[in-house]
């Protein structure tokens, strides 16, 4: 596969070549030149638009080295923060009069096995009732060292949310008062929401045909 006739198209990273579902036999579909690429990492530059510039103005001077990149996408702003600085940044976001993100809507984990060195992400959604604004803070940590400082001291509501993220993704929130499993049984092995954890399930017979388990079915993406 060459991309000489397609200038500006990134070479890597390629997710998949050829048509879906053809892995073990020769591709006779005619789609063998199909290349599916992973979307590039987004990074936005100023001006961000809307109230995002005001938020960034109040946040960035205080932490010039803590914010890795800023993404403005689909009308939402995301601050990617270095994990070591997370508690300070969160405290500043909560307490600074120009920011005042009093309400946190919890932590959501995402597992990106392809992002080497930053496989596990913790995503925080913050809401300012004073200014009626919303932002997102994203932190990542490598799979080999799944540690992120806990923010329960800043937002007590993160207590259960961090436990949930630990339970499902194995991210260890350092400094959490009692980081135990919350949804899965205490003696469960593995972290079910990770991409390398199988969904499980058994094939089911229906009117003579066998319907495979959901994670064995054909995937188009």
């Amino acid at each position: 596969m060459t991309t000489e006739n397609l200038p500006g198209l990134p070479e890597e990273p390629v997710v998949r070549r050829g048509m879906f579902g053809v892995k073990d036999s020769g591709d006779t579909s005619g789609y063998n030149r199909l290349v599916v690429r992973r979307p590039p990492k987004l990074s936005s530059s100023r001006p961000y638009g809307s109230y995002f510039d005001e938020v960034a103005d109040a946040l960035e001077p205080a932490f010039p080295d803590a914010i890795e990149r800023v993404v403005v996408d689909r009308g939402e702003i995301t601050f990617h923060v270095r994990r070591e600085r997370l508690p300070e940044v969160m405290r500043h976001l909560r307490d600074d009069p120009a920011l005042r993100f009093e309400l946190s809507l919890g932590v959501s984990g995402v597992h990106y096995p392809d992002e080497t060195g930053a496989e596990l992400h913790a995503v925080y959604h913050l809401c300012s009732i004073t200014h009626n604004r919303r932002i997102r803070v994203e932190v990542s940590c490598p799979d080999a060292d799944p540690h992120i400082p806990s923010t329960v001291q800043v937002y007590p509501t993160h207590d259960w949310h961090e436990r949930e993220t630990y339970d499902f993704f194995g991210i260890i929130f350092d400094g959490h008062p009692a980081l135990t499993r919350i949804e899965m049984p205490d003696d469960w092995e593995g972290h079910p929401q990770r991409k390398d954890y199988p969904l499980g399930g058994i094939p089911v017979e229906y009117r003579g045909a066998e319907v495979p388990a959901p994670d064995r079915r054909r995937s188009y993406s």
């Binding site: 992973r38 979307p39 809507l105 919890g106 959501s108 984990g109 995402v110 597992h111 995503v123 959604h125 509501t157 259960w160 949310h161 949930e164 929401q193 995937s219 188009y220 993406s221």
Partner: peptide
């Protein structure tokens, strides 16, 4: 991730919080 299935969906359920 650009596919036909959700890559990840998380619900911030009010009862949970």
């Amino acid at each position: 991730d650009g596919g036909t299935r959700p890559y990840r969906v998380h619900f911030r359920d009010p009862s949970f919080t």
